[in-house]
Write a protein that binds this DNA or RNA. Sequence first.
DNA 1: AAAGTTTACGTAATCGTTTGCGTAAATCAC
DNA 2: GTGATTTACGCAAACGATTACGTAAACTTT
Lengths: 338, 338
Amino acid sequence: MQDLAKELKTTPATVSRALNNSPEIGEGMKKKVKALADKYNFRPNAHASSLRKGKSKTIGVVVPYINRHFFSTIIHYIEKYVSQEGYNVMILQTEENFEKEKEDIALLIDQRVSGIIISLSKPTINCLHIKKAIDEGIKVIQIDNVLKSVNTSYIKTQDREGARITTLHLLEQGYKKIALFCGDMTSKLYQDRKQGYCDAHQERDIPVDERLFVANTNSRKEGCKAMRKLIDSGVEFDAVFSSGDYAALGAYLVCKEKGIAIPEKMGIAGFANEHFAELVTPAITSSDQHSKEIGQLAAKQILKEINNKDAELIKTSLLPELIVRGSSLKSEKLKIKN
Amino acid sequence: MQDLAKELKTTPATVSRALNNSPEIGEGMKKKVKALADKYNFRPNAHASSLRKGKSKTIGVVVPYINRHFFSTIIHYIEKYVSQEGYNVMILQTEENFEKEKEDIALLIDQRVSGIIISLSKPTINCLHIKKAIDEGIKVIQIDNVLKSVNTSYIKTQDREGARITTLHLLEQGYKKIALFCGDMTSKLYQDRKQGYCDAHQERDIPVDERLFVANTNSRKEGCKAMRKLIDSGVEFDAVFSSGDYAALGAYLVCKEKGIAIPEKMGIAGFANEHFAELVTPAITSSDQHSKEIGQLAAKQILKEINNKDAELIKTSLLPELIVRGSSLKSEKLKIKN
DNA sequence: AAAGTTTACGTAATCGTTTGCGTAAATCAC
DNA sequence: GTGATTTACGCAAACGATTACGTAAACTTT
């Protein structure tokens, strides 16, 4: 920048202002500066700029695991959007670990990022770390697993309602005893889904059988384990609603292995609409969480809050879309039989 | 830092050195500095440090799309590894666009990242942008789709050999006319896979029928289209080897739709071992590309090159693992019939 | 014990931009 | 034509850490 200034017999100040399109610089000078910058292929040092401004054009994205279809899709759309505005994204994973989450946030503060988009790890129950970021002037947007105790914009799924709708669907298909697989119950997200499951039962005046409830069941392996255990326990049930597709898949595979007919003898419904859900035979009923919309909304909103001192926060809950597939279509089959 | 220095009646220089564990600082002073830093929860400004050092503790990762299982898994392991060493990762997507790739690299240079791990976009055929990064002292590692015309470490799949093995497998199963689906043929990656396919034919003295070759077929939709077109063309064939699982899935679904028995009338094999390949019925034969190993190796190697001025480059080609599944098991079925 | 070496820390310049303040020249009001 | 603005730019001080160089004090060597 010094060099450009020298060659143009002006000062770095002017060069800087010209490159930043400051209105205090005349058109003629701007053209000259830009032309020379182009000629020498000059690009300003991002760190010097960030240091001086106390802010960098970076958005931090914090998720439990990036190699989950749901999150990688969200990040895809975030990156796609913010990169158009000259921002870049820094990615951190919490692996569902609260301590790591705190450290991740601290790192992003060290980087003076302009904004943070975060899906809280499941065990997180306090948000002092988030508040610290906000105090530093960083805009925060929560997605997916959010805590309302801290006042930020958020975009989440209507977990309770989504679970209610799925459960209702299973009940309407004629399933009587529905097992429920959830994850870490310290998380509001799973509490909500369980609540929705209970709501549906209450509406239909059906008692909830706690023996059919299994927590900490997220992965395919855990889903298998839970399913085997439940079957071996002797408690009767004729359907499984899993808070995640992977655990649903586990249950599904155990049925196939044991020759339990899906959907006739056992109904299965998942959540998240993972890729494989529609591909297996019969396909698995699941709820789409609109990852694309979440990513786009989060990106749009965070830039708005960064650029507009007092942009209004948004508190959005998207209704997941129940996609009914073969794994829970008992009544249709019955009709055909008659 | 100034404040800490003042309180300890010393200078920022000493504080900086103490925090960085410089051997020039006595143990007593180090303890005092660190204690006070802890007390005030002081964390150094990353940008000031990067500016002064001309380098930031950031690794840039450039891939076509992050929401592909293969890439998100690689990135997962990269982030996991480098974050332990105090590095963080910045992610850029090229969307298979050369211009965007150039801009991405320029952005990472602006950020003075310490290293770049990149999977070149398919259309990329020259590496001036990569060389520019190297000239800036940035360590570069290529993964997956690499160009050997630039001298960097790389970790890739043995595309030719992998394709050869898959093709040989299909031939051994008794398939006579194997269609080949590939992607953008300007990319060395697909050229290699096609070559492997040809190798296998040559070994078995079987002529290659160019009418059975379809390029630019990556997605599920394109796979469907290609399959329909091929069937309608009237050219006879009894198997499909697709360079990607999604296109293989397209072919697979068209068979199901048209009632073409898999694997009896049509053998199918993909590449990449996507999640769904093992889940559909029959499961799809595919080759695992060891994404976990690629991520770990890339991360380990880039840190080595960053920390060791003259660490040796690695040029690694991992042999993909052919996972034979039902979609290509014709002979087994025949045996059962006899 | 004098000279040399090491240890532990201070001094001050530097990384490359940005920006509050100052000011000459140009423009405007009347 | 004089004073008041406005325009367009220069000056210089930041931003916060790092590091080459300098130097007292402590320690070695012979």
